[in-house]
Design a protein around this nucleic acid. Structure first.
Lengths: 206, 206
DNA sequence: TTTTTCGTGATACGACCGTACCATGATGTT
DNA sequence: AACATCATGGTACGGTCGTATCACGAAAAA
């Protein structure tokens, strides 16, 4: 047998090319030839590793969420070891804002996929219910933990606030994308609500 | 000169056809032939009244926002004459949720246009800054009025809360669209925040 | 009544898209 | 050494898309 290339790695390379070019020109405008050119391979290769465009797009979505998960993890790690619930929540929310080029691409493409999935049934399979639900559950758990630990107002409704925070981050992310809002103002709004939810940390009375 | 047709009316008819078919199959999937068929006219006619597809899309966006404004106005009118600030805010927010077919189309298409405008510069001209800003200003004004009238907690930050409410409505609207959330749960979250912002009306002690 | 101009139709053109087909090195296996 | 098979390139095909072109009836203006 011949060269025996790692198919999964190749697919990842091509998927990243897809993400790059889609982040530049929009998901709707990207064709298989564009992806091939961006990845530096022939059109045939893209066809070889993903038989159809639909499969390429689907794999691209999976790759996108994987990379986003990694991004969130990195932000959490950067928040230091064993960060408090508030720092964790903050890292989670800020990671989803398009404050840098990577975040911009993530937000743009994830929104594009979401809108696409509304009308193009095949995309609507699962990932658009699973991932947001996971984030919502994680955030809810964090708020519950904080409340039980006395770090948050006892009257907060964890799930409702979790949903609210995620929704605000998502929509303000789009506002940033279209140039209506600055990242700073979005962060300020989020901080406002975090200050409302979390009681001032009683660690070190100054 | 010949038949002298009202161009503006024709354009509106075609634009509504565009909105209908785009609401069904997605904005990215709609072609000029689809619009022509939906409007019951020939392809040539669509070309005649909108020379290019870009102009058709642009006019479609204008028409969409006009119809949405009318929808909000109708909701406000339905809230009775001289409704209080809270009822007005509620009507505004609920009108933007995709709870019926019309709202679904509005939300889907407006989101599509927004995402499109990120990469397709020509669309990014103005309307995506102006309209959201107007809504934000209107809501801010209502919250200020309520606060000054003693209907809202004096500690509320009108602009921040306005931004928050609009963002939550927008993002939860998308959640409804993709089937992740029910309209009822979205409305419940909004009510939660309205209850937080507005003090119980002291009109009629029961 | 002639003429000009508007509204409308049918159709053609060039470009691009996703996909399919054919060919050919390279590399393991026998 | 011969062969089977994987990886890759080149290219062609059918379809669709936005746009342009040609043609014609109808009605207001002369």
């Amino acid at each position: 047998m011949p060269k025996r290339v790692d198919h999964e790695e190749r697919r990842a390379q091509i998927a990243e090319a897809l993400i790059r070019v889609a982040g530049r020109r929009g998901l709707h405008a990207v064709g298989m030839r564009d992806v091939a050119a961006e990845a530096g391979v022939s059109l045939r290769l893209v066809q070889y590793y993903f038989e159809t465009k639909e499969k390429l797009l689907f794999y691209g979505l999976q790759h996108l969420t994987a990379r986003f998960t990694a991004r969130v993890g990195a932000r959490l790690a950067a928040a230091g070891p064993d960060p408090g619930p508030r720092a964790t929540v903050e890292a989670l929310l800020l990671a989803s804002l398009p404050t840098d080029e990577e975040g911009r691409t993530f937000h743009l493409l994830y929104s594009s996929y979401a809108i696409l999935s509304v009308t193009d049934g095949a995309l609507a399979a699962q990932p658009f219910i699973d991932n947001p639900d996971a984030a919502e559950n994680a955030l809810t758990g964090l708020l519950e933990t904080a409340r039980n630990a006395g770090l948050a107002d006892p009257s907060v409704a964890p799930r409702t606030e979790a949903v609210s925070l995620l929704a605000m981050a998502a929509a303000m992310g789009t506002s940033i994308l279209v140039g209506q809002r600055t990242p700073e103002s979005a962060i300020a709004v989020l901080h406002h609500h975090l200050n409302r939810i979390f009681t001032p940390t009683p660690t070190k009375p100054q």
